[in-house]
Design a protein around this nucleic acid. Structure first.
Lengths: 357, 357
DNA sequence: TTGTAGGCGTTATCAA
DNA sequence: TTGATAACGCCTACAA
């Protein structure tokens, strides 16, 4: 097993100087060299199966062709399609992606960033912005192109690509309101997560617009898990005036609400309607299939990578500015089996099931 | 925004030669240098916030600290935990992982490998072995440490870390046999996938061991999707002697079987029991919750990375051998709601539901 | 205990 | 049109 051929090997075999070979290999400088010698060189390249050493090139050019993707946890089903979208876009441009999980631990996050910095990544895509995060703006200040995906960092200049959470909440609320619901409660995630905060405020705004109590109950789950969702939903359903609809902050919380309803002997959607958010895989196989808001996860990643690439490419121009503002992608409510008109009395136009109230 | 400090900067500031600084920075050579100067150098390192340039080091040492992870599609729910396991182990050792999706396209796979090779990755973990794959053995022959995860390449020397598919099938079959089933059918994936082939042969062996017809019907779905699973299961359930249990090749196929049963008006598990394989997220939220075989996905990745690291570390020793053979991790059947004794008549000891037969 | 020098494989500038 | 040269930042055998 012999050593990989280098530029020098090719040059020697072709009887030219390494510099000339390098020129032939680069489209931009290719026509500086005689067609004949170029052809000869290309033949040798073929023969020796030469392929440039990206590390050496990186040392010289200060570019690695590497982009870091920093996410909390790949195991969370929202991330795989996002990462896939990122990779799809980066791959087209000849970049590769380094993946890191931080479990939302600020320390691990800071550590990851510094490692990425050492590794000379050309840019960074992060899905980990926690409210008040230090390290991301700092990174950005160091001149590393960085874009956020799926989360944003309010009052920072870091560009972000996001789902339109507020509009999704509007669609959810309008949907259940349209079905006749009036007692609606939001089971949301912890508001230290910007996403959860945005959805919560979207809920409030939508309620207000619908002419309902903008101070409608909002219950905050401790974490974005089905267990915490169940706890929160149990609390919600135990209220004096039991809500007829739960608009959840994400599908996991909605799943928790399913369990809470089951434990209380309530039928979905007969007694209570439930709306999720995210449209994770398999929520259409829940019983009943979950009505939820579909987020274009793949596109989120794809567009984030796109923004980043633009930034990287333009970073050579001194006078170019980093991208401004956030990109908000449209979301879409998908009505399935977990929502229906509220139990009898209130909306007499449809089949009424047990109205325990 | 000033340039990052280099070894030379540190040396100058500390009034020593770069070589000395380098020595201080490496544990192995650290004690070759005077404690006093070392301390001084470390202070400067701190002050200048020096951090080594990994690219330059890589050029010099021929090591990048990068490992490529090549999978078919991150969006397939089995992979995220595997990738996470890989990353967890690699991270401990200071390695990072480059992720690529190939969609099981041999051309993209070959391409990915060649790109990884260019990028000088120290090793490779692949989950993409297709029967008769060319590029993996070739890669291995070039001396790149490579280990397979979740799939193996029979009759090649490439080490693999796998779930014990055959034993999983044994557990599945034993489970339904223990419940009293005799008419059992296997709905498996396409046998060009080594995993599907292994599970199929495991099914046959288990049937034989259970004293049942080892030539029991096996239906091969075109792809590992719920749609193809539904087709295959519909066929299975339409047979002259309708099976009372379907042992599926994976959870997606099992989900297809759920749909097929529903379409035929059959109750699960009243009329037909269904067993999955993989224990994907949320199958416990199916209706009924799916009985399936749990695979230690995270550990699969973790151990694969472990094997790879050992190999990389020992690759310096000329006389060291690449790891031999496959590592087979134990799997565990998780009994949930989709399995029960067969309909009346056959097993009179338990509640009998509609026995259409 | 520390300095010296050469080279890892490229690319970019300058000269011929 | 091509060659020579230096440099990117680091490591390491060898010399001092």
């Amino acid at each position: 097993m012999r050593r990989r051929a280098t530029l020098k090997d090719v040059a020697r075999a072709a009887g030219v100087h390494p510099g000339t070979v390098s020129r032939v290999l680069h489209p931009r400088t290719r026509d500086l060299v005689n067609d004949e010698t170029a052809a000869r060189i290309e033949r040798v390249v073929e023969e020796l199966d030469y392929t440039p050493n990206v590390v050496a090139r990186g040392l010289r050019t200060q570019r690695t062709g590497l982009v870091a993707t920093v996410i909390p946890d790949l195991t969370n089903p929202v991330f795989p399609p996002i990462v896939r979208g990122i990779e799809d876009r980066l791959g087209q441009a000849g970049y590769m992606t380094l993946l890191v999980n931080t479990d939302n631990d600020p320390e691990r996050e800071a550590n990851a960033f510094s490692i990425m910095h050492q590794r000379q990544v050309d840019g960074l895509i992060a899905a980990t912005a926690i409210r008040g995060d230090r390290s991301i703006p700092q990174m950005a200040a160091e001149g590393v192109p960085i874009v956020l995906v799926n989360r944003s960092l309010p009052r920072s200049k870091v560009p972000a690509v996001l789902p339109d959470d507020r509009d999704g909440m509007r669609q959810s609320v309008d949907h259940v309101v349209g079905l006749g619901h009036r007692q609606i409660v939001h089971v949301g995630g912890p508001t230290r997560l910007p996403t959860a905060a945005a959805r919560r405020s979207g809920f409030r705004a939508a309620m207000k617009r619908a002419g309902l109590d903008p101070d409608a109950p909002v219950i905050e789950a401790a974490e974005l898990t089905s267990a915490d969702g169940e706890r929160a939903a149990t609390e919600a359903l135990g209220a004096r005036r039991r809500p007829t609809a739960i608009v959840a902050g994400n599908d996991l919380l909605a799943l928790g609400a399913y369990r809470a309803a089951a434990a209380l002997g309530l039928d979905i959607p007969g007694d209570v309607s439930i709306v999720g958010f995210n449209d994770m895989p398999f929520v259409d196989s829940f019983q009943p299939p979950l009505t939820t808001v579909r987020i274009p996860h793949h596109e989120l990643g794809y567009r984030a990578a796109d923004v980043l690439l633009d930034w990287i490419d333009s970073a050579d121009d001194e006078r170019s500015e980093p991208p401004q503002g956030n990109l908000r992608l449209p979301v879409q409510l998908v009505a399935r089996g977990s929502t229906a008109p509220p139990p009898a009395k209130r909306s007499p136009r449809r089949k009424a099931r047990a109205a325990t109230n």
